[in-house]
């Protein structure tokens, strides 16, 4: 038996969430007393995973795995799962990994669960803790399928260096038949995305208008953070839809979430509750967000934010 981590890479480098998945996989493999296999696609840097515990590393290169499509990736992963007698697959919570997880489970008749926040409390039966009801609750869930697939919530486990055997093995594959082809990818360059960010700076209707986002962007830039917003802000077109966070928008599970001029409605909090540390800056001391936050500043954003920027600049 073995544990397999699908180690997502982009242009030969790994995101933190990939290292986190490997760290989690290593602890689980140790707990089960089995080997940890890491699979990468078209990545010449996969040896790096050794430092986080990979015992065996397969880098799969094939013509039609250049771009991610879930059918091709599932078919290729299934080959490794079969030849290496894999019992458990670990994924990160990236858009592609979550996309893959459910399809792979359907394709292999395995069982998959997402938003996992801890190592399994028991291996046999296999019981893991995951968040549900948009972070308003947790559940201890038992997975019953022969193949168990879990995706772990970002920043819920952490990254730990631990040397694995790191043997690099070749895995020969034939072309996979598919009629699904990626034709175009458009990415904003430079800016940090909400999903990958350690810090998210988010602002709401309290900012009064789109012209006032310069200071938000400056603050985010200083912190290396992603920018986000509340729903009305994106509905009014002040900010792009991709920044809308909350129950009906993107989930945020960063280490630090800074909410500026956001009241803290239940639907907003639902999407950001799994962030570790929350800071609220709001002129109304009665704003509900103060009940959900770790640190708070009661004050006018137009005074507090420039001051914060000034202090941060003075530090670097």
């Amino acid at each position: 038996m073995s544990v397999l981590v699908y180690s997502e890479s982009e242009k030969n480098s790994f995101k933190k969430s990939s290292y986190e998945a490997v760290s989690y996989g290593k602890s689980l493999a140790d707990k089960m007393g089995v080997e940890l296999i890491c699979v990468t696609f078209n990545c010449s840097n996969s040896q790096k995973l050794k430092n986080f515990g990979a015992d065996k590393i397969f880098n799969i290169e094939s013509q039609n795995s250049q771009e991610f499509t879930c059918k091709v990736y599932s078919t290729l992963l299934l080959k490794v799962i079969e030849t290496e007698n894999v019992s458990t697959v670990i994924l990160s919570s990236s858009a592609d990994s979550k996309y893959l997880g459910a399809y792979l489970a359907g394709y292999t008749y395995g069982s998959y669960i997402s938003n996992v926040v801890e190592l399994p409390e028991s291996i046999n039966p296999f019981i893991v803790k995951r968040s549900c009801f948009t972070n308003k609750a947790f559940s201890s869930t038992e997975l019953k399928g022969d193949l168990k697939i879990i995706s772990i919530s970002s920043n819920s486990y952490g990254i730990f260096e631990k040397e694995g055997k790191g043997s690099q093995e070749e895995f020969k594959v034939d072309e996979i038949e598919t009629n699904h082809k990626v034709t175009n990818i458009e990415k904003q360059s430079g800016s940090v995305t909400i999903a990958d960010a350690d810090i998210v700076v988010s602002a709401g209707r309290g900012l009064k208008g789109p012209e006032n986002w310069k200071m938000i962007e400056e603050l985010a830039g200083l912190l290396g953070a992603a920018t986000a917003c509340s729903k009305p802000v994106s509905d009014m077109g002040w900010r792009p839809h991709s920044e809308h966070v909350g129950q009906t928008g993107k989930p945020v599970s960063s280490n630090l979430y800074i909410a500026i001029g956001i009241s803290g409605a239940i639907q907003h909090l639902a999407g950001i509750n799994s962030s570790k540390v929350k800071v609220v800056i709001n002129s109304d001391p009665e704003a509900p967000f103060f009940k959900a936050a770790d640190y708070g500043v009661v004050g006018d954003a137009f005074e507090v934010i420039p001051r914060l920027i000034q202090e941060l600049k003075a530090k670097v």
Binding site: A95, D96, V182, K187, Q188, T193, A195, D196
Partner: peptide, 8 residues
Amino acid sequence: ISGGIETS
């Protein structure tokens, strides 16, 4: 997708 849009 993370940070953008993919067409297929």
